[in-house]
Computed example of a mutant assay.
Amino acid sequence: MRPTRLERITSDAGAEIAVLTFDHPPLNLFDQAMFDAITADVAELVADPPRAVLLRAEGKVVSGGVDVHIFDGLSIDEGAALWRKLFDEIIHPLESLPCPVVYAAHGLTLTAAFEIALACDIILASPRAKFGLVETVVGLTPSMGGPQRLAERAGSGRARELVMTGGLYDAATLHTWGVVNSVHDDVDAEARALVARLAAGPTRAHHATKQIVEAWRSGGVAHADEVTPEVSGALFATSDLKGAVRSFLDVGPGKATYTGE
């Protein structure tokens, strides 16, 4: 049985949504089959992007972490190559998708699953969810971008605390830190509703937002200011902006519909 499932659905508003589900019982461990499946799924999303993506999991936990067999006996060069591959084939392509990406965590979310969440735009969690980057148990540091993305969201001191202690942190705590965007009793339903709303929005404008924020991440406010005029200026050629401006002028705000074009 394939350890992931990628489905494309159409929302009530007619927008295409992709739902990527981890389904690798009993613990959704990130073994080689899981990494290979996610790599293929992300490649498919890159080749044919929808208007929004939801990442979620089946089972009691989101993931119990990485199958440690993957690390056994690796040389320095092989270890470095592993991390480069995961950045190149999962983390960076996921971040660069030209649409909103939402992650729903309903239970325990460890190591690679948490690092993938940190590469998404918005993280929703259940009150029962717990998160951890526990790589110190095998003498590692998280190496799929978790520490730096955690530092971006919560500050460097919090990132060092979470990684160095190897502790588990509940959703409420990470919400106060700014890592989790919001906490919901029925996180799957909330995430699906949010993704549907985002997918019905101005997709090109959402992509522009991601590009501007990415410029800030790489070069600060000055760099973001440099790229904003061209990135945002290009939106004036989109049907969504033209139609929304006309709708605003004709019937007032909040009445426009978007096609993603």
Rank of each mutant, 00 (worst) to 15 (best):
A52S: 05
G178E: 09
S63Y: 03
D36K: 04
V46A: 14
D36S: 07
T136Q: 07
G157L: 03
A193Y: 08
A105H: 08
T136L: 07
T111Q: 02
A52N: 08
L118E: 05
G178A: 00
E152A: 09
K210G: 01
H223P: 02
P127M: 07
A47C: 03
A112E: 10
T109L: 15
A119P: 02
E89S: 13
M34P: 02
G220H: 07
C99M: 10
G73M: 02
D77K: 13
P25E: 05
D186M: 01
E230D: 14
P93G: 04
A117N: 04
T257F: 02
A105L: 07
G166Y: 01
P229N: 02
F87H: 15
S218R: 14
V163E: 11
Q211N: 11
L249K: 12
I76N: 09
S63H: 10
A205S: 01
E7G: 04
D170F: 07
M34Y: 00
A129C: 14
L94F: 09
V195H: 08
Y169S: 14
C120F: 06
V163D: 08
P127I: 03
S143W: 08
Q148D: 08
D77H: 10
E226W: 08
L140F: 12
K60E: 15
L20F: 03
G79W: 11
L168I: 14
W83S: 15
R204P: 02
E261Y: 03
I90G: 02
R56C: 13
G220V: 12
A57Q: 00
A244L: 05
G146P: 05
S156T: 06
P3D: 08
M34S: 02
I70K: 06
S126T: 08
G167K: 03
V183Y: 12
H69V: 10
A112F: 07
E78D: 13
D188Q: 06
T176R: 13
G233T: 09
K255F: 05
D240M: 06
A40S: 04
D12G: 14
V251H: 15
G14L: 01
V227N: 09
H223L: 15
K242V: 06
P49D: 12
P253H: 01
V227G: 01
A237C: 06
